[in-house]
Amino acid sequence: MRLLFVGDVVGDSGQQMIKEYLPKLKRKFHPQATIVNGENATKGRGINESVYKSFLQTGADVVTMGNHTWDNREIQDFIGGAKKLIRPANFSANQVPGIGHTIININQQKLAVIDLQGRVFMTPSDDPFAVVQDILEEVKKETDFIFIDFHAETTSEKEAIAWFLDGQVSAVVGTHTHVPTNDARILPKGTAFMSDVGMTGPYDGILGMKRENVIGRFLSQMPTRFEVDETGRQTLSACVIDIDDKTGHAKKIFPVLINDDHPFMD
């Protein structure tokens, strides 16, 4: 089984990159499942229904979220019926709408996709280590093919949960920090890991935001409204993961980067 995972889509710029390159990536790599993190897709904060549906139409099988899940209030109107949209499973248990994991059919196999959020330097949430263990008890009754989007701030927490789950899941890939890391690897017991897959959207912003606003905050320490940089160049960050069809263990993981410094090659 081959998976394609595309990192945090930011604003209109990120949406454009998805529309232009996701079909090309699917033709090039032939993934059996495509997962897209869309938590910044609508104006850099959350996602609305039309953008969610456009991702599915363009080729995403599952859309994951993160700490900005509720920033666009419209999500509360449709997340209950959006079976391919998952928010972090360790949001306050049974107190918020939506689901934290889903299982999709891929030919004669099934893939479980789980969304989790870290707790270090993040808004309060339930313990992801405990929550994921409970989920695994459920999903492992149906499949050994399990992908986790771990939306977290620190590399230490991301590494910790990957090692904690090594051999129990197919892959743990981090999101949230928007900068792709150069540490894609297969852990000893067969779990693919990458600290952060990176972002999809503005290439010339700072984490996708207008540079002058971010720099201004560092210079003055005054509150500044961050806005998506929609006028510059664009980038797409992703990774491809190959999973053994018999064991559910990962065989290979490699990053994919598309921008002016890394042009797309058919």
Rank of each mutant, 00 (worst) to 15 (best):
A112R: 06
D166M: 02
K189C: 01
Q95C: 13
V179N: 13
K83T: 02
G118A: 13
E159S: 11
L85K: 01
M122I: 04
F78R: 01
I114R: 00
A130Q: 07
D115M: 02
Q108Y: 06
I104S: 09
I86S: 09
P180H: 12
A112M: 05
P88T: 08
D166E: 05
E142N: 14
T123G: 12
S125D: 04
I135Q: 04
K84D: 11
F129E: 00
W163N: 07
G201Y: 02
Q76L: 15
P188Q: 06
R87A: 05
F145R: 07
I86F: 05
G100R: 03
S170D: 08
V96A: 07
F121D: 15
M199K: 04
T102P: 10
L207K: 09
A112G: 08
Y203S: 15
K84V: 00
T200R: 01
I106Q: 08
P188C: 06
T102F: 06
T181D: 01
S156Q: 04
G205V: 12
Q76C: 12
Q168K: 11
I75Q: 05
Q95H: 13
F147V: 06
P97L: 14
R73C: 10
P124W: 02
K110H: 07
D183P: 10
A152V: 11
T177Q: 09
N72Y: 03
K110G: 00
K158G: 07
M199Y: 05
I206S: 06
Y203V: 10
V197H: 04
G198I: 02
H101R: 05
P128A: 05
V120Q: 11
K140H: 15
